[in-house]
């Protein structure tokens, strides 16, 4: 049986279940918008000093950088160069140097993935902090609502059964055998748990650690992350993980049936697989 048979055979439909509360749906789309702007304005901010360090400060007279993106002059002309963990890569066209050959642009990340598309740190910061506030506000609303309506306990926090079912679920996912049950599968729970309880708090707290004002208020932030520059590096790393999450998220939505998935995140109603036991409140 192929994975999308369930949505193809009208005779063998499972019940339509109310899966996503209005709190989950609204915060989901608010985050989608926020993360788009936060990513692109964040890359603009990164371009103002395209290097990442470990520790309290940035080494100018010594080297504590993990990543450096820039342009260098070579006998063949300027090239984009990225140094990551001591390894040097030629990243011409993507990082350090991009744009048309006649008039290349020497920014770390190309203008296609920054807001604004040209160098403008001030605007990047204005955009970043505006959406940062909304992102954090939505996070508070979601945590509160999900605690009260049971979404956290039911769908996010992995329980004993989820841990036991994880190997099986991993194997199923590897074979693209996706279940359209009433509840999230163990792997889904684990992914959302990591995003909500690890990645989102980390990216907010490391963002705050870059604020000299917040470092005075909460000096433990500096100790927790091992310094302002380490926090900046972690902030960037978590961004990369969230981009990876986004890619997997989109691929899974497409594989699992994009229309059904989109409907559940817009109206709340989700079509389950044939044979799913009917419960009170379901629709045919």
């Amino acid at each position: 049986m192929s994975l999308d048979d369930a949505t193809k055979l009208p005779a063998a439909k499972g019940p339509l279940v109310y899966r996503q509360s209005v709190w989950t749906r609204v915060t989901h789309w608010v985050w989608a918008i926020c993360l788009f702007f936060l990513l692109l304005s964040g890359l603009q901010i990164f371009n103002a000093h395209p290097a990442l360090y470990v520790g309290q400060e940035s080494g100018f007279e010594y080297d504590n950088a993990l990543l450096r993106i820039g342009a260098v002059n070579t006998p063949e002309g300027p090239r984009g160069r990225t140094i990551l963990f001591g390894q040097t890569y030629d990243t011409t066209g993507v990082l350090g140097m991009s744009g048309p050959q006649a008039s290349p642009v020497y920014t770390a990340f190309p203008g296609a993935v920054t807001i604004p598309s040209f160098r403008d740190l001030a605007t990047g910061r204005v955009v970043h902090f505006f959406f940062g506030w909304i992102f954090v506000g939505a996070l508070f609303v979601w945590f509160l609502a999900s605690f009260i309506n049971g979404h956290l306990r039911r769908d996010i926090l992995p329980g004993g059964r989820d841990v036991a079912g994880l190997p099986r679920d991993l194997a199923d996912h590897a074979r693209f055998r996706l279940h359209h049950g009433r509840l999230y599968s163990p792997l889904q729970k684990l992914s959302y748990f990591i995003v909500f309880f690890i990645l989102f708090p980390l990216i907010v707290l490391t963002g705050l650690t870059m604020s000299p004002g917040m470092d005075a208020a909460w000096p433990w932030l500096l100790d927790l992350f091992g310094g302002r520059q380490t926090a900046r590096t972690i902030h960037f790393g978590v961004m990369v993980l969230l981009v990876l999450f986004f890619i997997v998220h989109i691929v899974m939505v497409l594989l699992a049936g994009p229309l059904n998935q989109l409907r559940s995140m817009i109206t709340g109603w989700y079509r389950t697989a044939p044979g799913t036991p009917r419960e009170q409140g379901d629709r045919p």
Partner: peptide
């Protein structure tokens, strides 16, 4: 559509500058 959005860049938000 997705890659088009990325490739066209984000100059649609340049007015924010």
């Amino acid at each position: 559509a997705g890659s088009g959005l990325v490739l066209s860049g984000c100059n649609q938000f340049d007015f924010l500058a």
